[in-house]
């Protein structure tokens, strides 16, 4: 019993901080989402935001953004990871991490010069014979710029997650299959892909979670009211916040949190769920502890 208390003591300061700064206020936000003024208002706040044009636009954009970005990023980063994993010298993987390190404000300055309607990219396109300039920042093309920025920024991150998965696949499976006469195509689809299922889960979850950060580039490039096509949830929340519409903000946070949880749950069921569960969640740590005890003996 003494031991338990001591371990808890190590964790306690951090747990109190997390409770005070995150968990308890989250519950408070949940409560507030049902309150208007000082009165209990059932689902009024939810009804208001569901009818709110700005919120619907932003939620729609966010969902559209995820549906375009996630498949694109997952696919490109996987192909990249397979090629890079096969290289003897993997220094190049660090090049792909550079965008992750670049602050969004520097990126925004560069993008304004590159993607302006008279910018460098349009100049390049016109030299290639495409006469019509694209207004990348102030038309619906802004969505494409944002998708490109997100993929470009997260490519290296996802590639490393895939490489971690690839390096966990035992080489002797490949050797055995090659002896049986399998070609590289079969090797990839029958061995590599099935073994990457857990990595797929990790990559999808992290890409999804990180996709909310694309607001930084959108905001620094185009401010509080950008082109409609890149008006994101954080824009609505910021604008509600400035007008101190806390009821709407609370309901919006709860809806976003529910959406997030549903998506994470769906990802888990779709990607991990169908596989024979190699190890149930809690068993992992138990196993580690067991191994330790065995080693200790």
């Amino acid at each position: 019993m003494k031991k338990k208390d001591k371990m808890l003591l190590f964790a306690l300061p951090s747990m109190i901080g997390t409770a005070v700064f995150l968990l308890i206020p989250l519950l408070d936000v949940f409560r507030r989402s049902f309150v208007q003024g000082a009165e209990f208002a059932f689902f009024d706040n939810y009804k208001t935001i569901m009818g709110n044009e700005a919120f619907r636009l932003a939620a729609g954009n966010t969902i559209k953004f995820e549906m375009v970005c996630l498949p694109l990023l997952l696919l490109i980063s996987l192909l990249l990871a397979v090629v890079v994993y096969g290289m003897e010298n993997r220094w190049i993987q660090f090049l792909f991490l550079v965008p992750l390190a670049l602050p969004s404000n520097s990126i925004a300055v560069m993008w304004r010069l590159l993607f302006d309607s008279q910018g460098i990219v349009n100049g390049f396109l016109s030299k290639l014979g495409i006469a019509q300039p694209v207004d990348f920042l102030e038309s619906h093309a802004a969505f494409l710029v944002l998708v490109g920025t997100y993929v470009w920024k997260n490519l290296g991150y996802c590639m490393l997650l895939w490489i971690a998965g690839l390096s966990a696949i035992p080489q002797n499976i490949y050797e055995a299959a090659k002896v049986d006469g399998a070609g590289s195509f079969i090797l990839f689809f029958k061995i590599t892909m099935p073994n990457l299922r857990k990595s797929l889960y990790a990559v999808t979850v992290m890409s999804f979670v990180n996709s909310f950060k694309v607001f930084r580039e959108a905001y620094l490039m185009a401010g509080n009211y950008p082109n409609d096509s890149i008006y994101l949830l954080q824009h609505v929340f910021n604008n509600w916040f400035q007008k101190l519409e806390l009821g709407k903000l609370a309901a919006g946070s709860v809806v976003t949190a529910l959406f997030l949880c549903t998506m994470l749950y769906a990802m888990k069921k779709l990607i991990i769920g169908r596989a024979e569960r190699t190890e149930p969640k809690k068993a992992v740590k138990k196993k580690v502890i067991q191994e330790r005890e065995e080693e200790a003996q």
Binding site: V20, F21, L22, I24, P25, L26, D28, V29, R32, V205, V209, F212, K213, F215, L233, Q234, F237, F241, L246, L249, A250, S253, T256, A257, L260, L264
Partner: peptide
């Protein structure tokens, strides 16, 4: 895993 969009109001309140 919670993005800032979800925790923003709660953090502001504290």
């Amino acid at each position: 895993l919670l993005p800032f969009q979800v925790t923003m109001l709660s953090q502001y309140l504290v």
